[in-house]
Amino acid sequence: KLLSSIEQACDICRLKKLKCSKEKPKCAKCLKNNWECRYSPKTKRSPLTRAHLTEVESRLERLE
């Protein structure tokens, strides 16, 4: 599967780190437990900047 097509777990399953069936409108866990089942939009991760990478590398060197 391509990364862009990976389905996201519902908010509660993601928060509780449960295996989500990803069914809509309610996944199996939410249906069974009568929880409100919501699927928040995916958040875009910002790409690493060179400055951040350099900072992490220098912190790693100090720890070694």
Rank of each mutant, 00 (worst) to 15 (best):
S21F: 07
T54K: 11
A9N: 10
K29T: 09
A9G: 04
L53E: 05
E61T: 02
C10L: 00
L31V: 12
K16D: 08
C20H: 07
I6G: 15
R14Y: 09
L31A: 11
R62G: 08
K16E: 05
P41F: 07
C37D: 01
L2E: 11
C30R: 04
K44E: 07
Y39G: 01
P25L: 09
V56M: 05
R14D: 08
R14V: 03
L48E: 01
A51H: 12
K24M: 13
K22H: 08
C13N: 00
A9T: 09
R45S: 00
C37R: 03
K19A: 06
S21I: 00
R14P: 04
C30D: 02
N33I: 06
N33T: 07
K16V: 04
I12A: 14
E64Y: 00
I6Y: 14
C30G: 05
L15S: 14
S5L: 12
N33F: 03
K22I: 00
E36Y: 13
K44S: 02
K22T: 03
K16A: 12
C30P: 05
K17Q: 10
K44I: 11
H52D: 03
K1H: 15
L63Y: 15
K17P: 01
R59K: 14
L15C: 12
K44N: 01
K19M: 04
K32G: 05
R14G: 00
E64L: 07
I6S: 13
V56Y: 11
K42Q: 03
N33H: 13
S46P: 09
E64A: 07
K32Y: 07
I6K: 14
E55F: 13
L31F: 10
S46G: 03
C20E: 00
A9W: 02
K1R: 13
E7V: 15
D11I: 04
K16N: 03
K26E: 11
E23Q: 10
C30M: 06
K42P: 09
W35F: 13
Q8H: 14
C10E: 02
T49V: 06
T43W: 09
E23P: 04
I6N: 15
C37V: 02
V56R: 07
L18R: 12
A51Y: 10
R50Q: 12
L60Q: 05
R62M: 03
K17L: 04
H52V: 04
L18C: 15
K19Y: 02
A9K: 00
R38K: 14
E57N: 06
N34M: 08
C13W: 03
N34T: 05
S5D: 10
L3D: 08
V56P: 13
C13E: 01
P47Y: 06
R14I: 03
E36V: 06
T54V: 08
E61H: 12
A9Q: 06
S40E: 12
L63F: 03
N34Q: 09
K44V: 08
C13A: 07
K32W: 02
E36K: 07
R59V: 04
E23I: 08
C37A: 03
L60R: 04
L15R: 15
K29E: 03
L3N: 15
I12P: 11
L3K: 15
C10W: 04
Y39W: 02
C20R: 02
S5M: 14
Q8L: 11
K22A: 07
L15Y: 06
L31G: 08
E57A: 02
L48Q: 02
I6P: 14
W35D: 10
S4F: 11
K24D: 04
I12S: 14
S5E: 12
E55V: 08
Q8K: 11
L15G: 13
R45V: 11
L31I: 12
L15T: 15
R50H: 02
E55C: 05
A28S: 15
L63N: 11
Q8P: 13
R14L: 08
C37W: 02
P41I: 08
A28W: 06
K26S: 13
P41W: 06
E55A: 13
I12R: 14
R38F: 11
S21K: 07
L3S: 15
S4K: 15
A28H: 12
K19F: 02
Y39L: 05
E55M: 11
E55I: 13
A28G: 15
K17I: 01
L53Y: 07
K32F: 04
C27L: 02
E57L: 02
T49D: 04
L53A: 01
D11T: 01
R59T: 08
K44T: 09
S5A: 15
A28I: 14
L2T: 11
K16F: 04
E61G: 08
L18W: 11
C30N: 07
K29D: 05
L53N: 04
E23N: 11
A51R: 13
K24Y: 06
E61N: 13
L18N: 13
Y39P: 06
L31M: 12
A28M: 15
I6L: 02
R62V: 06
P41K: 11
W35G: 11
E55Y: 10
R45M: 02
C20P: 07
R59Y: 07
R38P: 05
S5T: 14
P47L: 06
D11S: 07
S21Y: 09
T49I: 02
K1G: 04
L60W: 00
N34L: 06
L60F: 00
T43S: 11
K29Q: 04
R50W: 06
T49H: 00
K26R: 10
K17Y: 09
L31K: 07
V56K: 00
L48P: 01
L63S: 05
V56S: 04
R62D: 07
